[in-house]
Simulated scan of single mutants.
Amino acid sequence: MEFRTEIEVAPARFKISTDSKIMTVGSCFSEVIGGQLTDNKLQCLCNPYGTVFNPSSIFKLISHSLQNQPVFKHLMLENNGIWQHYDFHSKFYAHSKEELERELNLTHRKVNQFLRKANFLVITLGSSIVYQLKENSQIVSNCHKTPASNFKKEMLNVKEIILRFRSMYEALKMQNNKIKILLTVSPVRHTRETLQLNSVSKSILRTACYHLEQDFNDVHYFPSYEIMMDDLRDYRFYKADMIHPNEQAEQYIFEKFANTYFTEDLNGFLKEWNKVKMSLNHRPIQTDTPAHQKFLTDLLEKLDVLSKKIDVSNEIEIVRSQLIAA
């Protein structure tokens, strides 16, 4: 008797290999995927704009980076001597307008350079609900705790999301015709908007993703939302806030992701790399014993072999620093 409904992920039309370049962007779940990719030594630019929930802001930021468009100065705001920007996450701040402008334009250039050579763009959509500034009807990525009276709340519809995606897609393909796009809907519930509105919001995102996958041969949908809602439908897979997937759930979803998109060579490498990671995380009580020194020497040899495939220079330096000169 089966006591769970495991999600069968559709086979991918393209695969990620050890030399693939991947950018993740979108909601906080993009941080999870990007962090896992980086931790497993893949070349990943992880959520360069910070957390961005709504598709309109995600597509706008990517488009501006691709076009090397300077940030909109009229969307900068100052609060108690700190400057921020409505298009960007609150992690971007400065003590002057000019300093913030330089940092944000540098971020756009960094993304532009990466996307020109990237193989994959992973987009995690978090919410269909957007906030518009009343003064100019601009959709913002982050309200930065300014008064709610400054904004008008709206719900994007499927048509709007598809049109805005298409505009971003065309700009992306002009710069890099070979890049593939992986879409997913964040499994994190947005309870601030009520669970009822969260359900409506997620259904719009999922419907938009369905049509985008049908319309574009190089767009593929990964069901992280469905895996969390239907496969891991138990609160033991959530953090204490009962909203975010816990570490066990994140690892499970990433393993599904790897099984779907990674080549056999990459999956084989990951098994090898995970063994090395366990050795790197080993913390002995005594470090100067002959047994531990031999352990370090053997580990260094394994890292030297891996260095022909990936950059493990930091790990090699750490291990060498623990070796006692004979």
Rank of each mutant, 00 (worst) to 15 (best):
E2C: 11
F3D: 15
E6D: 10
P11W: 00
T18D: 00
D19V: 15
S20A: 12
K21D: 02
K21W: 11
G26Y: 00
C28Q: 05
E31S: 08
Q36M: 15
L37N: 03
T38Y: 03
N40V: 04
Q43T: 15
Q43F: 12
L45Q: 07
P48Q: 02
N54K: 01
N54A: 09
F59K: 10
K60T: 12
H64G: 15
H64V: 00
H64P: 02
L66Q: 06
V71N: 12
F72D: 14
H74T: 08
H74N: 13
L75M: 08
L77N: 10
E78D: 13
N80F: 11
G81T: 11
G81M: 09
I82F: 05
Y86L: 15
F88A: 02
F88L: 04
F88T: 01
H89N: 14
A94F: 03
K97P: 01
L100R: 08
R102Y: 08
E103F: 12
L104W: 05
L106N: 09
L106R: 10
K110G: 10
N112G: 11
N119L: 02
L125A: 12
L125M: 15
S128A: 15
V130A: 12
K134Q: 07
S137E: 07
V140I: 08
N142V: 06
C143G: 06
P147V: 07
E154G: 06
I161D: 05
L163C: 08
R164H: 12
R164G: 11
F165V: 07
S167K: 15
Y169L: 01
Y169R: 02
A171H: 06
L172K: 06
K173C: 09
N176T: 08
N177T: 13
K178S: 09
I181E: 00
I181L: 06
L182V: 15
L182H: 05
L182G: 15
T184Q: 03
V188N: 14
V188E: 09
H190L: 07
Q196D: 05
N198F: 02
N198P: 14
K202E: 05
S203K: 07
L205I: 04
R206A: 07
A208C: 06
A208F: 04
Y210E: 08
H211C: 13
H211W: 04
H211K: 15
Q214F: 00
D215Y: 13
N217Y: 01
N217F: 00
H220Q: 12
Y221C: 04
F222A: 11
S224V: 01
D231S: 03
L232E: 02
L232H: 04
R233D: 06
Y235T: 13
R236P: 07
Y238T: 01
K239Y: 00
H244R: 13
Y252D: 09
K256F: 02
A258L: 14
Y261L: 11
Y261P: 12
N267P: 01
G268N: 13
F269H: 01
K271A: 03
K271F: 01
E272M: 08
N274I: 00
N274C: 06
M278R: 12
L280H: 03
L280K: 09
R283N: 07
Q286N: 05
T289R: 05
T289G: 10
P290C: 03
A291E: 10
T297V: 07
L300R: 03
L306K: 03
K309V: 02
K309L: 13
E315K: 12
Q322F: 01
